[in-house]
């Protein structure tokens, strides 16, 4: 564990608490893509299957359980409790265009051609693009509640911090995880446009609005 990874994980935790806070205080999941949230459940369930056969640390296990449980809970809130506030007509990204290629990629790029390793690769690739339905929705509506942008920023910062973590691990442990690094760089890259607007507008006290 190093500083960057810990900070990244804390940022990930923060993003989930911000999202829960947004849903519960506004009593609405307006502006949140159900598809992205569903993809995160798929990501966590497929990646953290190793809870059953690999022990890393208490920290690791607790975080994994938290990410699975919280993502399922968010899905429940969106699907049942605050269902009327979710508008599927603007959440129209075709996720099969993500699931298919990620599955094919995981068959080609994996560390071992086994069920659990293929699922692990799949989850890494899927996580990299899981935010696309959300960003697509943002693009369509052209604006977002400030708290929603804080959620997205925390989520983006989490992945961005994994990059210095990998650099640090390369120099201190000689460790390189090409699949995670490649997917992680792509994932962080997807946030660049968003970050630009977030830093130049939202953090200056303005509303998140995309140019028409």
């Amino acid at each position: 564990m190093n500083f960057f990874r810990l900070l990244g994980d804390l940022s990930h935790l923060a993003s989930i608490f911000i999202l829960l806070h947004k849903i519960q205080t506004t009593r609405s999941c307006r502006g949140i893509s159900f598809k992205t949230q569903a993809l995160y459940v798929a990501v966590f369930v497929t990646r953290y299957l190793d809870l059953f056969f690999r022990y890393v640390s208490l920290y690791n296990s607790v975080m994994k359980l938290f990410f699975i449980a919280s993502s399922c809970y968010i899905l429940y809130l969106m699907k049942y409790k605050y269902r009327p506030t979710h508008d599927p007509s603007i959440d129209t990204f075709r996720i099969e265009y993500l699931l298919g290629p990620c599955f094919v990629l995981s068959l080609i790029f994996n560390y071992k051609f086994s069920f659990s390793e293929i699922l692990w690769s799949f989850s890494i690739f899927l996580e990299a693009v899981a935010i696309l339905p959300q960003l697509f929705m943002l693009q369509r509506t052209g604006e977002a509640e400030t708290i929603t942008t804080h959620y997205l920023a925390a989520l983006g910062v989490y992945r961005a911090l994994y990059i210095p973590n990998w650099i640090y691990r390369y120099f201190t442990e000689g460790l390189v995880d090409p699949i995670a690094v490649t997917a992680g760089i792509v994932q962080t890259g997807l946030y660049l446009d968003f970050f630009y607007v977030y830093f130049t507008k939202v953090l200056q006290g303005q509303k998140f609005e995309l140019p028409a």
Partner: peptide, 10 residues
Amino acid sequence: DASDSKHDEL
């Protein structure tokens, strides 16, 4: 060894 990867990250 990559085939024995530990996946210790989240």
